[in-house]
Design a protein around this nucleic acid. Structure first.
Lengths: 159, 159
DNA sequence: TTACGTGCAAATAATTTGCAGTCCC
DNA sequence: GGGACTGCAAATTATTTGCACGTAA
């Protein structure tokens, strides 16, 4: 935690490659995506969305994204990172993955898939949905229905 | 959280049904179980072990167990509950279940099985190992091996 | 304009740790 | 007796919230 001290100073006024090209196609798509999800495309949401969605599937914690934003000169506070991640999740743009009690991971892949978790590295990795299958499901308790099935394959380094 | 204020006063000196029968068979077994796991059978560990292991499979959080201990007149501090749960887990007497980011659950069933999680009630329930089966596993990354496969079927109330 | 967003600092929640005192073998 | 164990309070870690100010529509 507490990376506030070690983070580079904010330079809000400087040109920022991740934010400048409001006329570019990808940023335009992103703004549209946010608007479509009912979220106003603010500077921070566009910046974080850019980091999250412009380079394939990712698994991030709030802290990781916050540090990345700082490095990328996307000015945003840690509280806003938390808020934004939850808003994105509620909007269906992210999926939350509970893997260990401490940190919460967010996955940019919202499709049907499962996860490897490399315990020694605290690292998540996607498993293609087609590559794993849960056989028959057990009897579901009365009055209940399945919201989701989470599978986490925990890996360790081979001896 | 902070149940210190609402907890009943400790009465260390009073006879305690969960602790008294040191000559009884179940308590004897428990003491043996602890010793066998390399843990000294102290008053607190025996008390908590009694609560955990004497009534079938259970899923508890530290806070839940702490409150139960208080109700059952097993004198123990919250810090010791945390320490004890982790010691039991390291000794293989408990299994830790990561189900949602906030609270950590411990399961007295250490065998091969998976879980239902009723999100609205924050409640875990065992699925018999025989009742579910994961089909073929995906390719495991180079140099890694499977430590465990966790399956959590998240349930919601049917509309 | 004006409601929605954001930053900051303080609040919470869950858990861990340091250390002085206690208890089991 | 001596090291393992425990309790308490304080420290950490992850996350949330309250509120004054900023900004997109």
């Amino acid at each position: 935690m507490a990376t506030l001290l070690s983070a580079p100073p904010r330079r809000t006024k400087q040109p920022n490659p991740a934010l400048k090209a409001d006329t570019g196609c990808l940023v335009h798509d992103l703004r549209h995506k946010l608007r479509h999800a009912g979220l106003r495309p603010t500077r921070q949401r566009v910046g974080l969305g850019w980091l999250l969605f412009s380079r394939g599937d990712r698994h991030v914690t709030a802290e990781m994204l916050y540090e990345e934003a700082n490095r990328s000169r996307v000015p945003v506070s840690l509280a806003t990172v938390y808020n934004t991640l939850h808003q994105f999740r509620e909007a269906g743009l992210l999926r939350e993955v509970a893997v260990d009690g401490s940190r919460t991971y967010f996955d940019t892949n919202t499709g049907d898939h499962q996860h490897f978790y490399i315990e020694s590295e605290h690292q998540l990795r996607d498993i293609d949905g087609a590559q794993i299958e849960v056989g028959r499901l057990p009897d579901i308790p009365e009055g209940m229905e399945v919201a989701r099935v989470d599978v986490i394959i925990r890996l360790r380094r081979k001896k």
